[in-house]
Design a protein around this nucleic acid. Structure first.
Lengths: 109, 109
DNA sequence: TGAATAGTTCGACAATAATCGAACTATTAT
DNA sequence: ATAATAGTTCGATTATTGTCGAACTATTCA
């Protein structure tokens, strides 16, 4: 049951977090996790091949957004929301609110 | 006195904003502007060549973060903070606070 | 043990983005 | 008109990211 490395909260880098969330697919993963967590990778996969999904989760983990717990054969992902809140208060919540706002609008012309 | 194109606030894309701010140099420009605006490009230039600076300002403009007003020979930049606040409440402020927090810490090991 | 499941790692390729010199544009000052 | 100033645009180069198939690992189940 080998587990992942996760950076400690003190090592979170704002620019890495912003970069991680600047990808629409990764942002959508974080949005879905914010509603239901923890959750394995599979339901968040969309139509992408597993190797891409794995790559994006790795980016999210390295930025400190997601913690992945290996439980048997599935990898359970959750947001590190408490740690993020302690390190960068309001950041995740505000970005998630903004993400919710930018949906359901007429396609960007 | 030709002026720039700036996207309307309704067209702001969260992911473009996050991407723009995920670059440390651009983030530092936005930080400096938040303290003193409007401001020409030159004082924000650092040690970079003009063409790079120009590129980064273009990214910031296209994301909707910065408005550039051509005044005579200088280009005065300011944050589009009111419009950003209307479109994505709290976003810019929270990111700037996070940026302030992530400074003055021991180098990331 | 063997097969199924869930996801990772590797490696190659494509796409996007950053960097920077050189030439250019617009405005102001002489 | 000429020159100086402030910044842009172009084009080439490099660096960083994203994508995806194929092979691999770890765990569970039969």
């Amino acid at each position: 049951m080998k587990q992942y490395e996760h950076p400690p909260a003190e090592a979170f880098q704002l620019t890495a977090i912003l970069h991680a969330l600047s990808d629409p697919y990764r942002l959508s993963i974080v949005q879905k996790l914010s509603v239901l967590q923890p959750q394995p990778c599979a339901p968040l996969q969309g139509d992408r091949p597993k190797s891409s999904v794995s790559h994006h989760f790795s980016v999210l983990r390295k930025a400190g957004l997601v913690r992945t717990l290996v439980v048997g054969v599935t990898h359970m992902n959750s947001l590190r929301d408490a740690e993020l809140e302690a390190r960068f208060p309001g950041l995740l919540k505000t970005i998630l609110e903004a993400a919710a706002r930018s949906e359901g609008l007429p396609a960007q012309v």
